[in-house]
Design a protein around this nucleic acid. Sequence first.
DNA 1: CAGGACTTCTGTACCGATACAGTACGCCGC
DNA 2: GCGGCGTACTGTATCGGTACAGAAGTCCTG
Lengths: 336, 336
Amino acid sequence: MAKVTLQSVADRVGVSRMTVSNAFSRPDQLSADLRARILAAAAELGYAGPDPAARALARGRTGSVGLLINGSLSEAFEDAVSAAFLAAVSDELSSRGMALTLLPSSEDERFVPARDVAVDGALVYICDPTAPDIDWLRRRSIPVVVVDHNVEAGTASVNVDDRGGARLAAEHLVGLGHRRIGVVTLEVDPDEPNYPARERMLGWRDALDPAGIEPTVVTTPYSPRTAAYDVAHGLLSAPDRPTGVLCFSDAFAIATIRAAQSLGLQVPGDVSVVGFDDSVLAAASQPALTTIHQEVGEKGRAAVAAIADVIGGTTPDPVLLPTSIVVRESTAPPPA
Amino acid sequence: MAKVTLQSVADRVGVSRMTVSNAFSRPDQLSADLRARILAAAAELGYAGPDPAARALARGRTGSVGLLINGSLSEAFEDAVSAAFLAAVSDELSSRGMALTLLPSSEDERFVPARDVAVDGALVYICDPTAPDIDWLRRRSIPVVVVDHNVEAGTASVNVDDRGGARLAAEHLVGLGHRRIGVVTLEVDPDEPNYPARERMLGWRDALDPAGIEPTVVTTPYSPRTAAYDVAHGLLSAPDRPTGVLCFSDAFAIATIRAAQSLGLQVPGDVSVVGFDDSVLAAASQPALTTIHQEVGEKGRAAVAAIADVIGGTTPDPVLLPTSIVVRESTAPPPA
DNA sequence: CAGGACTTCTGTACCGATACAGTACGCCGC
DNA sequence: GCGGCGTACTGTATCGGTACAGAAGTCCTG
């Protein structure tokens, strides 16, 4: 069976191809009567509407937005915080009539999603800033919004006040009377710094430095839960172990609590633990986590609003979303 | 600044447009020397490579596969099992050089991703079979692979042996000596049946019927955790409460355990609970869940392999992945 | 030294739509 | 009766590539 195109339908009805195109894409350009006849003929011929690829070329827009993710996609889906972000982004995009295309960074030179997939714009999400994929987006001059990243002048961005939040966390422990404080966080590679990790560290110090407290910092490279457990275990095994621990995320905090419990320490009786993100894990944890709340859903919606603006030609102001502290059961004054 | 196309580069180097195209897409078609000169000129002009939209039209392939999801994307991301599936799919696709485009079902007639977004093929994942989006895919004659759905003849599919797994679960309880058995599962709307829910019910009955056991079934519409808790609570409050409960998923099972504990019942001392999926929740639960293991990652990879086949023109045989039972701590013989 | 087989590069014809600038015609006001 | 304006439809020129069938030159081979 021959391929059905606008032309086939046009021939069938006896109008020009353009009129058929208008019947589908600009209904106000023709009479309702003719339009109905065209649609009927299209249905009869099995024509499903304008071919998206051809339309994308002719219009210069594809109707989908890319999400650049560097590193394993599995991690992105399985981490509660990034999953919630993805969910918010895709929901918001679909309510604005756009699809979401994932652009993993490629290991294979022959196919680089950031270079070879048609998108109208892209969100740069979990990426080290040195990733070549980001360069591809720039070279293609694709509209970009950067999320959870340091802001380069002129680039639209959406960030969370990581530093301010971390400061709240540290102030909370100091306010409770803690003086020996530990930090369990991501390893920050100076060559490809993780922006939230750096900012949170700055925030913790913002509160600890004025109090004259030098925290004991232990780090682990991205994510393996067991690794966070191990370093937390080491931190809490030391003779002068901290009485309060600031953690990079709720997942890190939960690993820390596990480590404390395995050492026979009470949380918060012997050790207070503060998380970050206020993910679903936090409230469900035993004991429930004191943590820093960030609006992940709002972050996703703001990112979509920003990319829509950039695609539309305007440059939105950088967005900085607030953070706040949620005090639950994992913190208390230090033991006497 | 004027747009840079193949032609600009060709003019600059003094070769034909076709040769520049070959330099990018078919390196073996020209001499290494000329290719290097072309690439250099391209870099100089800021040409980032062939435009994906134009290439998609000319080649008839876009390099991305769609994933049709019916209902809220948030649920898909936040549920551990579907998130793991998505992760496996996207990882496998990217290692095969394809991107993943999410096709949410649209509420707005003007933009229907399944109709308006260019993809080479699509996985039909969480969808009620009556969704109009599936029709769009068919009308566009896009290659399709159906996952976790009933199989129509001639359509490629990937399924898990839900029925066999459910049977194992029920046999396990019967084998332990349970005679009063409850089922906590999804509501099955006859108009748009949830395939796994139906199959699992059949599997449970496969084992219970021969034993002469009529289970007490309670159901809840999709997913809200609190709803599962509520119906489980009701089930376990009855005077002749079951001693063993078969659950639709691990999330349902955990809600059921919570309900039991809130009623002062010991799991598994007073009530045994069996989950389904063996998601990350299962092992982490207190007590750890006895559950039915399914290979979600394998399901994702099989789905990608199948869609690649269909796009390639062959029709792969339906895939049915095995399930197995994992006995942990949430089941025991009924109280004496 | 004719002839086949490569290697390299080119010309032309699409791929399937949309944009934009008409053209044709009916209707109104003066 | 004629300019002006809307509405309804059409023609043509792209959009930026790729496929495929040559054409020209080079290298062997018998």
